[in-house]
């Protein structure tokens, strides 16, 4: 089946098997490998992208469901430089192995959009859908707080 959508500002159309998930479309058909897959039950959040401006788990959305949608991935988050959230993750050491990072950053951007001035509890609660096995979340929380001040 044909799926047409806009990814990082570019209109794309691909002929895919109907069981293709959005993350498979991004990774395997569009070579956008920044979005990762960490589980098969929709918990880990490594695949988080923005679908029509909202964070979703791209493993839990079929490509067909994204027909006509605007999708933003980690590769399209910033024009040129780093997005304030990306910068804050770097400054606060909010990443180690980097695998959960793209999903975490995309979730965090969505979080700050909904809560422009989040306290620690709001940040921790808002990142419930993203696992990180490296950082213990401590520096991720700091990074989101810092980014919120700059966004």
């Amino acid at each position: 089946m044909n799926v047409s959508l806009t990814v990082n500002g570019q209109a794309v159309t691909r002929d895919v098997d109907p069981r293709t998930t959005l993350v498979e479309l991004l990774r395997n058909h569009l070579s956008l490998t920044g979005t990762h897959v960490g589980c098969d039950t929709g918990q880990c959040g490594a695949c988080t992208v923005h679908l029509d401006g909202r964070a979703v788990k791209a493993c839990s959305v079929l490509a067909g469901q994204a027909q006509g949608a605007q999708v933003t991935t980690i590769e399209g988050l910033a024009d040129g430089g780093l997005h304030p959230m990306q910068s804050a993750f770097r400054e606060c050491h909010g990443l180690q192995c980097g695998f959960c990072t793209p999903g975490m950053v995309m979730a965090a951007v969505d979080l700050v959009k909904r809560h422009p001035d989040p306290d620690e509890a709001t940040i921790r609660d808002g990142l419930e859908g993203n696992y990180c096995r490296c950082t213990g979340y401590h520096n991720i929380v700091r990074a989101v707080r810092r980014a919120a001040e700059q966004m």
Partner: peptide, 21 residues
């Protein structure tokens, strides 16, 4: 010194190269 990590930029931009990539 708490030198910021040089590997971060590629990870933050989705440019890491993991095996499945």
């Amino acid at each position: 010194q708490p030198v910021h990590r040089r590997e971060d930029e590629r990870f933050l931009r989705g440019q890491g190269r993991y095996t499945d990539d």
